[in-house]
Computed example of a mutant assay.
Amino acid sequence: MASKNRITQLFNIDYPLIQAGMIWASGWKLASAVSNAGGLGIIGAGSMYPEILKEHIQKCKKATDKPFAVNVPMLYPEIDKIMAIIIEEGVEIVFTSAGNPKTWTKHLQENGIKVVHVVSSVKFAMKSEEAGVDAVVAEGFEAGGHNGRDETTTFTLIPMVKEKISIPLIAAGGIATGKGMLAAMVLGADAVQVGSRFVATPEASSHKNFKKMVVDAQEGDTVLTLKELAPVRLLKNKFYEDVQNLYLKSPSKEELIDLLGRARAKKGMFEGDLEEGELEIGQISGLIHEIKPAVKIVKEMISEFEQAKQEVARL
């Protein structure tokens, strides 16, 4: 795959393959491994205190001389500090999510940073283009973690977004193979963003118990829930059953917040509590059967992508 496209040119990377910024999974080890393999690695700032993020950025710079990005959920409480560190450390690419792209885009771009915003609908893709972002990630509801309320699948979302925007488009949600990558690009994406597949790597910072549960997951083992707070896709476990039992009582928003409590995702994904933790992963986990190095995943996806192109040509 030698030919450049809009995303590989924008980020100066070899392949139009981006590793998603995931809480409790994507630290400097995973980001630098994906970047070194020719994709774009992303450090997920959502689960990091500002000083921890600074440390991860510095370690990532030492581990790779290739471009990498930082993902910042805009709901983050100390967002001013996070953005100041990103600018200070010379990070070149920022992916923003869960918030209004107008808030930070201009400021980041004035500091020479390329900005990508993650959306789950056509409406917000158009708002992001209006806000001046350099590219958008359109994420279907197959994706793990926090998600769109509309339950629009990647297969329908990508062509609908493509029809309405002119800036580069990255597809996310349910993509873990080279064939999935090709399908997304045929539908109009310039690149793909892959999350769940990179959780099942030695470099991911998530707990080995969680990684094993991802590898063992079958079709139907994940579900989208807690829509009243912020829709989240997670693996079914005791915590999920507790949520379902509470729903039987028509709970108030406050009761749901009370059950969710604090640090529920950390407990599950980082500390490995498979009963009481919130285990965020995508539907594609049913297709992930082994833990393997990030570099191998990138190589296999690109090779399968090239092979699939030849097969499609013969149809």
Rank of each mutant, 00 (worst) to 15 (best):
L157H: 01
K61W: 07
P67I: 10
S128K: 09
F141K: 01
P159E: 03
P73C: 06
I87Y: 06
A183L: 02
E92A: 13
F68A: 07
A135C: 09
E130C: 06
W104T: 15
H146P: 12
L157M: 02
G173Y: 00
A138V: 09
A125V: 01
K162E: 05
M160W: 07
Q109C: 06
S166Y: 02
M126R: 14
K114D: 10
I167H: 11
Q109E: 09
E151G: 14
E55V: 13
F124R: 12
A176S: 10
M83Q: 07
L108S: 04
P77N: 04
F155H: 04
V70G: 10
A84L: 12
K54S: 10
A69W: 10
A63G: 12
H56E: 15
L53I: 04
E55S: 11
V119N: 00
L157A: 02
I87G: 09
M74K: 00
T64R: 05
K61S: 09
L108W: 05
E142M: 03
V91C: 08
I93A: 14
L169K: 04
C60Y: 07
K59H: 10
G99H: 04
F95M: 11
D65Y: 05
T105C: 06
R149A: 15
T154E: 01
L108Q: 04
E88A: 13
E151L: 11
P168V: 00
A69S: 14
N147M: 08
I87N: 05
N100K: 11
V70H: 06
F141N: 06
A184F: 03
T152G: 04
K179R: 15
E163G: 11
R149S: 15
I158C: 03
M160L: 14
F141S: 10
D80I: 07
A172Y: 01
I170T: 03
V94F: 05
K179M: 11
V94R: 02
M83A: 10
G178C: 12
V116S: 06
K54W: 02
F95K: 08
I86D: 00
V137R: 00
F68S: 06
S128Y: 09
K81D: 15
A131M: 00
M185G: 01
V116N: 05
V119D: 00
I87H: 04
Q58H: 11
F141Y: 13
V186I: 12
G90P: 10
M181R: 02
K81M: 15
I158Y: 02
F124M: 14
K179S: 11
K102E: 13
E139D: 05
K62M: 12
V161H: 03
I158L: 05
E88K: 14
K106Q: 13
M74F: 02
H107T: 14
